[in-house]
Each structure stands twice: as C-alpha cells, then as structure tokens.
C-alpha cells in the first residue's frame, strides 16, 4: 500500500463535488472515443461509398463479374464505365482465406488439443509462448517470406510435377496466411477446451474410454460452439489481412477457384487504389471506400456472430 493521503481530506462541499463531476465527464469522454471511432469509421466509409454509388449502381458493384477500375481514368468516360464488379475480389478473398483456414484449422486445433490435454505443464510453458511468437511477427514479414520463399518454392515444385503454378498464386498467400492464423485458433481453442468441465472427462474415463476417445467423442463435441466461434474470428482475421496478400497475391482480378492461379483480394485492391494518385472524385479512388465498407461489414458480421457464440457457450457451464 502506498502512503494514503486520504487523511488531509476535509469536506469542502461544492468544490469537491465539482471536481468529481469534471473527472467523471473527462472519463466518459475517453470511453466515448472508442464509440466515436466506430462512428467515424462507419461515417467515413458510408459517406465516400455513397458518392461512389452515385456513379456506379450498387447492384453493379455487388453482382458485377468484372473488376478493372483503371479504365475509368480515361477522359472520355469519366467514372462512367470501367468495371467495378466486386465478385472476383470477393471470390479471391474467400479463396485465399479458405486455403488459410484449411491449413490453420487442423494445425491450430490439434496443437490446442495436445497442449490442453496431453502436454505437461513444462512443455506447455515452453510451446505456448513459442506459438504465440507466430502471432507477434508483423504481417509484412510473412508477406516478405511468402513472396520470397513460399511462392518460388511452389512454382518450382509445380514445374517439377508438370503443372503451372503462378508465382503470385493464391496458394502461396493462403499457406502463409494459414500459418499466421495458427496461434489465433490454437489459443482461442485452448481456452475453450480448458473450459470443458473436468467432470465430463472423468465420467468418460470412468466408462473406459481412452484419452483420445474422450477428446474426440466428449470434449470436442462439448467445445464445438466455442471452437466454431474461434474459427469464425480467425476467418474474419484472414479476410481482413492485408500485407501478406499485397506482397504475395496478384493484382489481376481473375474470377477463378483454382488455387494455382493468381487472384486478387479486397484488401489488395484498396491498397493499390489508394497508394498511387489521389483524385478524390474519380470512381476509381472512391471504389476503395466501397470495398472498405464491404470489408468492414463482412468482418463485423463474422465478429458479432463469433462473439455471440462464444458468449452463449460460456454461460452453459458457468
């Protein structure tokens, strides 16, 4: 305990009350910054997007199959044509995220199961921070690694096996992103698995089940909602990830589900559209905000659903 200065307090009526009030107002102000930030995000995205949708109809944006914003720059078709169909970008984003999840889900989940159920405290104490290191590495480093090592490795591997893999393939970006997400899935699932009450395990062992059987038939089913929540959070993270795809995925908007081809994503397009010139009235620039809004809405929905699943699940055993 620090020495308490509370002794020299004398009741001074209004002044003390004013101080309390001022402090309270300041504190509320600080807490509201978070709300204001959200409002700011929504407002800025909506405002710029509305300007975009005045030029390009919403349906063209949401359902168009072609994305080539560059053509809008031509003088004789000011913002009028140029294709702004977001479908190829959404498909590309989902393709890369799906690859990432295919990599990260088994690895993250099995790591979590092993750490929660099998590992000794010592192993856990060493391995868990090491896995979390993966989460602490900046994404620009993953991007560099994907572009420098993973992509050429895949391309050469494909050549040796006799089929073409683009050097900006969705696979390279997806694989690397998958590794980035492993710690997210493993630490969230770890918490969920640990929250399954010990009584369930004991009952299962009592009936003669092995540890693996207990995990597969008792613990994982009991933890499914929480695990689903963590997978949704991880997916949202993958969809919003920027640097890995900017550095390792392509720029051309191909509408394909082939992981060996180059695809582009929503985040890549936002970066490409906004890091060059900045004429703020062209549909090209404004489309980045429409993409941002799309990204925000998708990730927000995933997060809200995920958080709700996790919350509801928590109540079950508490």
């Amino acid at each position: 305990m620090p020495d308490a200065p509370a002794i020299n307090i004398t009741y001074s009526g209004n002044r003390a009350r004013t101080v309390e009030l001022i402090v309270r107002v300041i504190l509320i102000g600080c807490a509201l910054v978070a709300v204001i930030t959200t409002v700011g995000i929504v407002a800025s995205l909506l405002f710029e997007s509305l300007r975009f949708f005045q030029k390009i109809p919403l349906t063209d944006f949401l359902f168009g199959l072609e994305w080539s914003p560059q053509t809008a720059l031509r003088a004789d078709q000011v913002g009028a044509s140029g294709a702004f169909g977001a479908i190829p970008l959404i498909v590309g984003t989902l393709l890369i995220s799906a690859i990432a999840m295919v990599v990260a889900t088994p690895l993250g989940l099995m790591s979590a199961v092993y750490l929660a159920e099998y590992a000794s405290d010592r192993t856990r104490g060493i391995v868990k921070p090491l896995l979390e290191l993966l989460a602490g590495i900046p994404t620009v480093v993953y991007g560099f690694f994907a572009a420098l090592i993973v992509a050429p490795m895949l391309r050469n591997g494909g050549e040796n096996l006799g089929f073409a893999i683009s050097s900006e393939s969705a696979l390279a970006a997806g694989l690397t992103m998958g590794v980035m997400i492993i710690p997210l899935i493993s630490s969230l699932s770890d918490d969920v698995i640990n929250a399954v009450p010990q009584s369930l395990r004991d009952a299962s062992y009592g009936l003669g089940a092995t540890q693996a059987e207990t995990i597969k038939q008792i613990i994982l089913p009991a933890a499914v909602p929480g695990i689903a929540g963590s997978l949704l959070l991880a997916t949202s993270r993958a969809i919003g990830e920027t640097m890995i795809v900017v550095m390792a995925a392509g720029l051309a908007a191909n509408l394909t589900l082939n992981p060996f081809e180059a695809v582009t994503t929503v985040t890549v397009q936002i970066v490409t559209l906004l890091t060059g010139d900045q004429e703020f009235d062209s549909a090209k620039t404004l489309s980045a905000f429409a993409l941002g809004l799309l990204l925000f809405v998708i990730t927000l929905c995933l997060n809200v659903i995920a958080l709700q699943i996790v919350d509801r699940y928590k109540e079950q055993y508490d």
Binding site: I41, S236, V271, G292, F296, T299
Partner: peptide, 8 residues
C-alpha cells in the same frame, strides 16, 4: 473495434 481489420 479490436477485430476490425487494420486497413479500415
């Protein structure tokens, strides 16, 4: 807010 993509 903690889960909003950084690019946003």
């Amino acid at each position: 807010l903690a889960a909003v993509p950084s690019i946003v």
